[in-house]
Design a protein around this nucleic acid. Structure first.
Lengths: 156, 156
DNA sequence: GCAAAACCGACCCGATCGCTAGGATTTGTG
DNA sequence: CACAAATCCTAGCGATCGGGTCGGTTTTGC
């Protein structure tokens, strides 16, 4: 499995937030029951998303969460990386701030034999994640679960 | 981390085998010391590769392993799948024998909101893996230690 | 017969995953 | 003010897996 359910749940959470029409915050409980996910677990995930500044929270009664930015402006790479940590195909791969990929096995001039492969893999994943916006998923997606007719209106 | 060291070590093993000129089998010990990997662990990995019919083994003194097919005819998808199991971005993703991708969350007509994303990711990974042959890695790669000057461009 | 190798299975330790529990704080509402 | 609804925080727990070791058994060439 490439990703754990952290990414799955977290993305679902983001989609649910992105689907909300108004600017009123949505409680996690609402998201949890809409997507049929354990609330206490979602709390952990949403905390990561908040740290990554992808969602804003308002505390207290009638509080909740909403997207920190426009859905069209949030790439899935940001979301997944907030949840799963930096995306790298392999332990020995680090990405420098400038985007260069380094393999800790390679000597100064001799390339690691596997680098070609992992670089291609990472490229494929990164392109897929960075090339998909939350907006797309919101538009694409149904309710995720047929049991909740809620929030289906924005599709029409 | 997308993949574990099982894939890393296994690919290195395959590259090492692919680099051998003659048809004489290479002992695991030789591979282990060449790549500086634990022999006893490699035994498990090579067993998977043997089950997947990617390597042949000959027992007894002066035995060892060699590629079951030509390096140009082995895709990295086969290798990685033999080691890591079926490649899927997410638990809920299964691939039918016909290659169709199914998400266990989607109802009959309502699509899972995350399916678009994971499908793209899987596509990216699969293209990278299936589009890379062992031969390419053999040609690309130095030994990891003895450095052969290689062209680092044309990675993507 | 001996040594080199492939084979096989059991075990071990630490990390992570998925999740729960129990609280504390903040804040709108009656 | 009291209360309830919500976010927030920390700790823990069972299970699985990853990475690796160990000890042994076969098979085979010399």
């Amino acid at each position: 499995m490439l990703f754990s359910t952290k990414a799955e749940y977290g993305v679902r959470l983001m989609v649910e937030l992105g689907r909300q029409p108004g600017s009123a915050p949505v409680s996690l409980g609402a998201v949890a029951s809409a997507e049929n996910l354990p609330l206490s677990y979602l709390e952990h995930l949403v905390a990561m998303l908040r740290n990554a500044k992808l969602v804003d929270s308002t505390r207290g009664a009638h509080g909740g969460y909403r997207l920190a930015r426009d859905a069209a402006d949030i790439t899935m790479q940001e979301v997944v990386e907030a949840l799963e940590g930096q995306i790298a195909p392999m332990e020995c791969f680090h990405e420098t701030p400038e985007g260069r990929v380094l393999c800790s096995h390679e000597s100064d001039d001799g390339a690691c034999a596997t680098k070609l492969l992992w670089t291609r893999v990472q490229g494929g994943v990164t392109r897929a994640l960075a090339g998909t916006t939350l907006q797309e998923l919101v538009e694409f997606g149904g309710a995720g679960d047929p049991s909740s007719p809620t929030a289906l209106e924005s599709l029409a």
